[in-house]
Write a protein that binds this DNA or RNA. Structure first.
Lengths: 336, 336
DNA sequence: GACAGCTTTGCACACGAGTGCAAAAAATCC
DNA sequence: GGATTTTTTGCACTCGTGTGCAAAGCTGTC
């Protein structure tokens, strides 16, 4: 395949030499829309194939100011919802000719800032923040450096930023309606100690909607956003004398934890004794053991929109936050 | 923060101008071990902070031949095991000063090759192949280009490649022993149609071990490596007259699907009627609804080893495949 | 104060590519 | 065939950085 004896990457210079043309010709061959005659193009392509040449995107990015790199800042990648989001994003970005650089922001607050700063070292075309609550100053720094920023489910309203979010309040209201239609009146909400805008939006949306019809709702909010926290919430809420008959868990993971304890520790039947609604529609929600009524994250649509933002020619100054609807997936954890 | 009026990234040239030093001084300030006097270093740092300067790793990589980029080629990122592997890898790589570029190889065979080829465009320091079965030729191309390659659970034994794998056969034998100790004799194995080396290793390891003690094992292998396939396997295997009393599912996802159908469609009790063992120790395996006995992937150890390989100075020519043990996690899906 | 030895600094080149410009070549027109 | 237009090609500059080399600066000793 290769005729050179020294190992390492092949440069356009070497291809040019073998093809008997100038380096410019090689460059133009791999630049769409550039002027090259068919025969030189063919000679170059042949030489490139012989040597195993691949355009160095880093060097290209140096001069053309666009690297094709998109940074994904995300914590808790191993979480079902976020991993499916990363899956969708990486795939769509690739289809659009970009490539995703994943910055793992798990850990302390400073680490998130370090992670975002890391982004700047690679002159990414855009940075997508999937989780973590980065400081306003850091985001401003990125914007100043010409970084295009896309925030998912954050609430920073700086000019130049693209905000993408879900209509959590509407979903919360729909959840309440479903509970009320099922005849439930003793409401509770289970959330985690992580006060991210999306979780808070779901919680307060539910509580506010309940208040509007004159109902109070018991709240559990401790621990990380995980199965164990939902389990802990169940132990607490179900141990009370006025046990709730309808529980809105702001995350499917919490809902699974809640259901596991409700069934295996309290011997309750779902939805006969307690109705449960989750959020995210993770894969496990559809498994027969849970069969959870929940709200689907429009993962594909969000990914499409993000790619649109990344690929857009102009950076519109003030774009209103883009709000997506989360359709309810009715399964069997709410009484009929 | 910034005094320049034009947007965009700041170069070392501008920092040099503000600090009143040469560009070399700026470069040396950000190069560990380079010779700079304390006062110039301080002036440079101050100017850099004022302007919001960040070293351009792309330009640096151009000259120093090491970009700090490590490509992760992976399909089905949304899968519990793989997402936790990606989580561990991205975190460890970052701690080692590298950054992960995720190439989503989901889809057809050609796409995987395209994905790996993509790797070469960014002059990554190394490529880690987590899934997909890339062609030998593609791997050879990468090696020729000086790409360091690390293959997880693949069986390509080319010189220059680092192979990392689990001792699947040992785990399979341990699973069989557990079943035998529980008094089970009617064995079955559930796997998917994906004939990856790891899944095949587990399956044949189990079947061979069973044959060694004179037992035959029924096999189900259809569909993707997912919950639905495990469910389908259960419908088939449990519908037979000589229903198995011990089932080794080569993946926890398959095991969950199997258990769900065994319980909810056949009304069987686990482990009283059927014993089940999985593989991977995904988060859901520990949930009370499953409480699955399984084998833990040594995710952290593997990630550590991969980082060691990536950061190693020399590329040893012939390194034997590194085999990790998968310890058995005994929970409650096997009779005592 | 002269000299040796060490540290710091700037110049200039290199990395691998894209592109404006003008020369060269080819195609078209009269 | 010559003039004109169009296409193709190569030169040379550029992007932002690291680094060898030699000059300059500093320190210390006799």
């Amino acid at each position: 395949m290769r005729s050179r004896s020294s190992p390492g990457f092949v440069s356009s210079q070497e291809v040019a030499r073998l093809a008997g043309v100038s380096r410019s010709a090689v460059s133009r061959t791999f630049t769409p829309g550039a002027s090259v005659s068919p025969e030189t193009r063919e000679r170059v392509m042949k030489a490139a194939k012989t040597l195993g040449y691949h355009v160095n995107h880093l060097a290209r990015g140096l001069i053309s100011q666009t690297t094709g790199i998109v940074c994904l800042v995300v914590s808790d990648i191993a979480t079902p919802y976020l991993s499916s989001m990363v899956d969708a994003l990486t795939r769509r970005l690739q289809e659009a000719g970009k490539v995703a650089m994943v910055i793992n922001a798990t850990g302390k607050l400073e680490k998130i800032e370090d992670a975002i700063r890391q982004t700047l070292h690679y002159r990414a075309d855009a940075t997508v923040v999937l989780s973590g609550s980065p400081d306003r100053a850091i985001i401003q720094t990125c914007l100043d450096s010409g970084q295009r920023m896309i925030l998912l489910n954050r609430d920073e309203m700086l000019p130049g930023i693209r905000n993408v979010s879900l209509d959590h309040a509407a979903a919360a209201r729909e959840a309440l309606d479903a509970f009320l239609a099922a005849g439930c009146r003793r409401l509770a909400v289970v959330t985690s100690a992580a006060r991210t805008p999306s979780l808070v939006g779901r919680e307060t949306g539910f509580v506010d909607a309940a208040r509007a019809v004159g109902l109070e709702v018991a709240t559990w909010s401790e621990g990380p956003t995980a199965h164990a926290s939902g389990a802990a919430g169940a132990r607490r809420l179900l141990g009370r004398t006025d046990r709730p008959d309808a529980v809105f868990c702001v995350t499917d993971l919490l809902a699974c934890g809640f259901m596991d304890v409700a069934r295996h520790e309290f011997g309750l039947r779902i939805p006969k004794d307690v109705s449960v609604i989750g959020f995210d529609d993770i894969e496990q929600a559809a498994w027969p053991s849970y069969n959870l009524t929940t709200f689907a994250q429009p993962v594909a649509e969000i990914a499409d929109y993000v790619v649109t933002c990344v690929a857009a020619d102009e950076v519109a100054e003030a774009v209103p936050r883009r709000l997506f609807a989360a359709p309810m997936i009715r399964r069997s954890t709410v009484r009929r």
